[in-house]
Design a protein around this nucleic acid. Structure first.
Lengths: 234, 234
DNA sequence: GCAAAAGTGTTAGAAGTACACCCATGA
DNA sequence: TCATGGGTGTACTTCTAACACTTTTGC
């Protein structure tokens, strides 16, 4: 990498997934040089930007380098620029080491992105990194102001989903049941849908198409699978 | 001002107003040193940030220094960080002069804010600046990527207004008629309301209270005035 | 009186809510 | 056959949409 680093601006990614129960965030921790033990606090995946890349490119790079995923739409939702974001000395030290910088960094503005992923997606993690899906309701204290970022990301996704629910399908597997869809919507938007009327709702969504397949191996009536077909008149 | 300037990050403000017909943006142009003639292209009001202020503080500072207004809520809606934002040499030169910098700037990420103002508000403009309200539909080519910022701001306000219309009242005078309110809503959100059903809608908004006052000096039946009372249940 | 915009009431249809019952499956 | 969650139909309520006529005011 011969890119020049911009020591004032970073991007951070709030990667959200859904485990059939609740929203989860992907947090990472750099393994110690030895390789066995991980140290330090968890963080959101992120990076300083290069001088010759756009913010969107930097966000895509972070996602790609960490997970190998490249075609995921990422949404920039807010910039965080408090003058005190590096007040914890550990965080400043980490930044300097991670990017092999010569000078101390006194101030960083970060541009926060979010992306919605299928949690069971096979992701090949960057070497030397420990990554976990953690329920947003049980987040430990993260580095920098990253807890605040997660909170803002969830809120932003919620607002966006109110205007257009179609983005939520990227949280679900390709085949999903009505209940799974309902749970996702309720969890993200916070509004409760009547279980019994939900099928009518689905029937009115041209982009949700019923399959002939059904669940298997459940100890009750098998649920029908649906799938999401984009372009079927939004 | 003994503040140190951060030469990589700026804020820009898309100040929107409504003139009973359409949305307008406040654009500025620095007067030439002589004072009489203005030169160069129009820009959005903005500034590099100081090392010891937050992004929100910088945005408030820009608004205050330009207009003297201080209690206006400003909403950060997007960061713009293309690597080519300074490709026009004039823009780079302007930046350097405006901030009395010694070195050339190669790259700037800007955090864009928007605020909704009453257009007829008395604003005392910063000296040495020429400022105009220009309809968003008739914007000239602005410096940097500022045309893009305006477009994104309008879209962002539109989305926000879909979820919560109360923000739109800051575009209206303290006393307004039903038609004025309807025009604002229709212009910003793009949805058309039936003129005849609109009064029912208003009656259901607890925060819109009818006054006993009416229009004066119009050559048709005088319209009733309403006012906005925040806190009357959302 | 005329033009121009404000204001009001009714009704049909669509969308949303509540609820009671039947169905399929594994244990 | 029982427990568990999936699925459907129907009646009721609430929201939305379409529409025509009367009122006030300046000229």
């Amino acid at each position: 990498m011969s890119h020049t680093i911009n020591p004032y601006v970073s991007v951070d990614c709030v990667l959200l997934g859904f485990d059939d129960q609740q929203l989860n965030v992907l947090v990472v921790r750099q393994c110690s040089t030895g390789g066995a033990e991980s140290t330090g606090s968890f963080k959101l995946p992120g990076s300083l930007i290069y001088m010759d890349e756009s913010l969107d490119e930097a966000a895509r790079r972070v996602l790609y380098e960490l997970t190998g995923l490249s075609q995921v739409p990422m949404i920039q939702f807010r910039a965080f620029g408090g003058a005190d974001r590096l007040e914890n000395p550990d965080d400043a030290v980490w930044l300097k080491r991670f990017h092999n910088l010569e000078h101390n960094i006194e101030r960083i503005v970060t541009i926060a992105y979010t992306a919605l992923l299928r949690i069971n997606r096979k992701v090949k993690l960057k070497e030397g990194f420990e990554a976990h899906w953690v329920p947003v309701s049980q987040l430990p204290k993260l580095a920098f102001d990253h807890n605040e970022l997660v909170e803002a990301a969830v809120e932003s996704v919620r607002d966006a989903a109110m205007l257009d629910t179609t983005m939520l399908f990227s949280l679900l597997p390709r085949k999903f049941t009505a209940t799974q869809l309902r749970t996702v919507m309720e969890t993200v938007t916070g509004v409760g849908y009547d279980f019994k009327n939900f099928h009518k709702k689905i029937a009115q969504m041209p982009y949700v198409v019923p399959l002939d397949e059904k669940e298997d191996g459940v100890s009750h009536r098998a649920a029908r699978y649906y799938t999401f077909r984009r372009g079927k008149r939004k």
